[in-house]
Amino acid sequence: MPYIIGTFIFTIMSGVLCGAIWFTPPAKVLGETARVIYFHVPVAWISALAFSMSLWQSVQYLRTNNPEHDIRAEVSARLGLWFCVLATITGAVFAKAAWNMYWNWDPREVSITILLLVYMAYFGLRSAVSDPETRMRLAAVYDILASFAMPFLFFVVPRIYSSLHPDTVINSRGSNKILDHRMLLVFFAALIGFTLTYFWIYVLSIRVERLVRAREESDE
């Protein structure tokens, strides 16, 4: 069964990769560089998904004190962080191609930087607490505290930094006008493919983390 799922995900992802490069036409406004959206947007979506999952699991941990929830929260935060880094890199590469600058403090770049900082701080906190039960509790609290601050961030950042982000260009005029049906097909396939990949990695990482913790407990 895992092999079937694995093969299935592999097929979708290879399809997306080939489709993104050969099947879709270049975008009208942004040209060839727009192909990055088939990777950048799904990756950013996954990191948002993973962070929300981490938050949910942290709440569950504080409610139940079940270490299983802490495992899930930590794994989600770690995956979220990795995908967030990928989103930052793909974004920066695109920014270089489009505006000849890797970084220009556009609102989303500001927000993503702060998200990265939040979860780096989260792991900093985890490594600074030696007692496992205290670590789980404090990490969960920090995860939730950070999520209280996020809405403020998303509210305030666009008001202070002005936007260059292309999706306001793409979305504001109705997506079907600029994205033709082949692009849409590959785009949604990419979203589905990345989401499946994420869940696959998520389930595997949880199993690994469980084993790691069991070994830590029984060692010595």
């Binding site: 900082l117 701080a121 906190l125 600074a128 607490v129 920090y142 601050a149 509210f155």
Partner: peptide
């Protein structure tokens, strides 16, 4: 207070959360 390396940890934890203010 319940962690190690508090002096450095505190601003690291505080900065992203206090950013909007």
């Amino acid at each position: 207070a319940q962690a190690r390396a508090r002096g450095t940890l505190f601003p690291v934890l505080a900065f992203p959360v206090l950013m909007p203010v």
